[in-house]
Design a protein around this nucleic acid. Structure first.
Lengths: 123, 123
DNA sequence: CTAACGTACAACCAAATGGTTGTACAAACT
DNA sequence: AGTTTGTACAACCATTTGGTTGTACGTTAG
């Protein structure tokens, strides 16, 4: 799935098919590469379930399926949550043991996030 | 960057280094593959700025950098936003022209999201 | 000093990837 | 019917990728 998102052309196809359903020919016309190459990219995206194809006459209409995009995003969000909980653990080391866990005031990893080089050095 | 996230081993390395800073040797011990292979994975993750390395004696301590993860997540979120605005546009087609734009009641794309096959067929 | 450890890197290899052209076939147009 | 259009797919090619082993080098331990 990340593999499917790895190529810029495929991300662009995804972007275009989010905007509006398009035939494979229409997509192919948008790039320098051959029709067959675009068709293969579409096949990869389809295999990754990032798009769905629908037959209409001789055309194959392609549209993005946001569900897999959401899945990918959720996975990355989970990583970020892991990171946050790691920070919480380190934070707990610096708070006196008798103190209640205290909800962290406002940690915003996305902004800067310079993690202390304290390292847990876990087994 | 998505390329770096494409390999499962690298995602696992990322996960481990989110949990706690680890040396390349420690990471290598966790997998069947050779040390050199792991070292290369680490290099790829480093090039993608998903991790940072820090020298400590003869060891290189690896830890995840959440900033790039956030960037990837934000990019996917933008795709989802595009999809939502597309729905809004289609929605507008079905609302009578004289009506005020009206904020969409509650669209939840992540749940099912079966977009109408109306297609804008843009130029 | 010498040995062991941790890392980096080069050289090599098989498989996957992204691209090409050519062929086949169904749908639509004349 | 015959031609054009849209798609799929096979065969092929160059490059990248993920893996290997071997070598070199700085750092720690004996």
């Amino acid at each position: 799935m990340f593999q499917a998102l790895a190529a810029a052309t495929r991300r662009d196809i995804l972007r275009r098919t989010i905007a509006s359903e398009q035939s494979v020919s229409q997509l192919a016309a948008a790039y320098e590469i051959s029709f067959a190459a675009v068709q293969k990219h579409v096949a990869v995206l389809e295999a990754a379930q990032l798009i769905v194809k629908r037959a209409e006459g001789r055309e194959r209409l392609v549209r993005a399926d946001p569900r897999m995009i959401a899945r990918a995003r959720a996975l990355l969000a989970r990583y970020e949550d892991l990171w946050r909980s790691r920070v919480d653990r380190l934070d707990a080391l610096f708070s006196e043991p008798s103190t209640s866990p205290r909800i962290h005031p406002s940690i915003h990893p996305a902004t800067d996030a310079a993690p202390p080089a304290t390292r847990t050095e876990g087994a």
